[in-house]
Design a protein around this nucleic acid. Structure first.
Length: 202
DNA sequence: TGCCTGATTGCCT
DNA sequence: GGCAATCAGGCAA
């Protein structure tokens, strides 16, 4: 079942936590791939200089200022893309970065796209999961409540539904500004989270 | 295991 | 012109 649009009315940090355990599904011409979200980061409009929208709207971040529940996909480091869920009301500019997925469907297709057969390495990072899921910059701005790229409820596949006590909050990864804010969330002990996440865990 | 670096390009100041 | 919400591989220990 596709996540109801009403979830995107909640606060960005709440959405970052509630997306853990939900499923990202992409129905592509090559086939369906799906993954359970196990790691997210919140990026806020106010008091958060690490957020792309912090300095106001530009051509690059325009989608962040659009209606919530849409995909914000941006290009980084000359060769990778990152996938975000736009949050906050139109005109505000906040988002949740999806950092890692646990593969649940279309694993053979993910392996082909990622050129590796190591299950725990397919989607364990924001750049990796974009490749594994076959997402492209053309999907920037696509809705996530209808169409080929959708978010599904926590009971859509066989994985367990996380409890609140399973969620760990830590500082975000790879940023220099506001590096101390505990706005990264992941499922405790999950081996499909990104590498630096697992290091922190042990 | 873990640190360090090169790759590579568009956007913003 | 500098830098960025990254990743893979090389090297040392």
């Amino acid at each position: 079942m596709i996540l109801d649009r009403s979830i995107y009315q909640k606060k960005t940090v709440t959405i970052a936590r509630e997306l853990l355990g939900t499923y990202l599904v992409h129905d592509s011409p090559e086939g369906r791939t799906a993954g359970r979200i196990v790691e997210t980061e919140a990026y806020l409009c106010r008091n958060d200089p690490a957020c792309h929208a912090h300095k106001g709207q530009t051509k690059r971040n325009a989608v962040m200022f659009g209606p919530p529940g849409h995909a914000y996909i941006y290009f980084i480091y000359g060769m990778y893309y990152c996938f975000n869920v736009v949050t906050a009301p139109e005109g505000v500019g906040e988002a949740v970065l999806v950092r890692a997925l646990e593969p649940v469907e279309g694993i053979a297709l993910m392996e082909k796209r990622r050129k590796t057969t190591q299950l725990h390495n397919l989607c364990s990072g924001p750049g990796k999961l974009v490749l594994a899921m076959g997402m492209t910059p053309q999907m920037n701005g696509w809705p996530l409540f209808e169409g080929a790229l959708t978010l599904h409820t926590k009971d859509s596949f066989a994985c367990p539904i996380p409890r609140k006590s399973d969620i760990v909050a830590t500082p975000r990864i790879g940023i220099t500004a506001a590096a101390e804010l505990p706005l990264r969330f992941y499922l405790k002990g999950n081996r499909f989270a990104s590498r630096r996440c697992i290091v922190t865990e042990s």
